[in-house]
């Protein structure tokens, strides 16, 4: 009897546990979501009632709007660079810190600190200075290329790079999640592996990675989502410029909604983004069964 209760379904308890989220979902997410979906088929300037226009917004964005195409392109490039970079950096550092080297607690704090600045005005001022033509990065480049006097943050070819570096620099939260994951691996497994005489590489692929895979999967999904939704850093440092090279999708949607008062086409951008993201995330979820290891099904 008991055995059934453990592995069988239990609707009452299941819904009891997810109830808070369900209430919140219906109450503050679902209605705004439906409204935003409706807005995407209207012309809506926030200050007067929305007017239904059918697929007009989607059609305009996809066929006519060159800025939207640019925005899609720069966002894709951004995601493709940031995701592996940030994951590699934070996993690498987490592995270094996991062995508790001398001063690990201090390092952990130092590595997490930059994440605490988020997309604040202070960070914007600093980043524009660091990557200016007179900043330390430019000075460093001048060691190899004495004629260099461009502004890194202000030039079309390199502006997006500065935002990429910022996100890589703020790897603290991803690192902490990796660390928590590493700490969660039962030590017994390592002891067994040692007795078996496995080297560090074998141990990593036989023990660490499979055990960490669910956390890795989480970080992968989250990094993808957050990179697609990059907003505040670009809003405050480069404001989408120069020549739209950092006009990422959410920033463009925000501008359309709150600066150009076109909430309709702004919502349409959001729903296109959602569609793209669901496809990408869906792809990873579908593939996850092959390499993500869970204790429970």
């Amino acid at each position: 009897m008991r055995k059934v209760a453990i592995s069988g379904t239990d609707n009452r308890m299941g819904y009891l546990f997810i109830a808070p989220w369900l209430i919140g979902f219906f109450f503050i997410t679902l209605v705004p979501m439906i409204l935003s979906f409706y807005f995407s088929f209207t012309q809506y300037d926030l200050l007067s009632s929305p007017v239904f226009v059918g697929f007009e917004n989607y059609k305009n964005l996809i066929i006519n709007d060159e800025r939207f195409h640019t925005s899609l392109w720069v966002t894709f490039i951004f995601v493709i660079v940031v995701v592996p970079l940030r994951l590699a950096v934070s996993l690498g550092i987490a592995l270094l810190l996991f062995r508790d080297p001398k001063g690990h607690s201090l390092y952990k704090t130092l590595f997490y600190l930059p994440s605490l600045f988020g997309g604040s005005v202070a960070i914007a001022v600093m980043w524009r200075q660091l990557f200016s033509s007179y900043g330390p990065i430019a000075s460093f480049i001048r060691l190899f290329n004495p004629g260099f006097e461009k502004s890194i943050v202000g030039s079309p070819n390199t502006a997006s790079l500065t935002i990429i570096i910022l996100l890589a620099w703020q790897f603290g939260s991803t690192m902490l999640i990796f660390l928590a994951g590493l700490k969660n691996i039962p030590k017994v497994y390592y002891e067994v592996s040692k007795i078996d005489g496995a080297g560090p590489v074998t141990t990593f692929f036989k023990i660490t990675f499979p055990q960490l895979s669910s956390v890795f999967f989480f970080n992968l999904i989250l990094t993808i989502i957050n990179s697609f939704m990059i907003f505040s850093q670009a809003y405050i440092i480069t404001e989408g410029g120069p020549v739209d090279k950092t006009l990422y999708l959410v920033l463009y949607a925000f501008k359309r909604g709150f600066e150009y008062f076109q909430m309709g086409s702004s919502s349409a951008i959001t729903w296109i983004l959602l569609l793209i993201l669901s496809a990408v995330i869906g792809f990873f979820f579908a593939n996850s069964k092959r390499w993500v290891y869970y204790e429970s099904k």
């Binding site: 592995s7 069988g8 379904t9 239990d10 609707n11 308890m13 299941g14 819904y15 009891l16 546990f17 997810i18 989220w21 369900l22 979902f25 997410t29 979501m33 935003s36 989502i225 697609f228 939704m229 907003f231 959410v250 949607a253 925000f254 909604g257 702004s266 919502s267 959001t270 983004l273 959602l274 993201l277 669901s278 995330i281 979820f285 429970s296």
Partner: peptide, 27 residues
């Protein structure tokens, strides 16, 4: 609830949870 209990509709609700993760709050 999502990780440990089997119940009807769990997969659907979890998928919806994931979708809400992809909504930009600004909008």
């Amino acid at each position: 609830g999502f990780a440990r209990i089997e119940f009807k509709g769990r997969k659907i609700w979890f998928a919806i949870l994931m979708v809400t993760l992809m909504l930009p709050v600004q909008l």
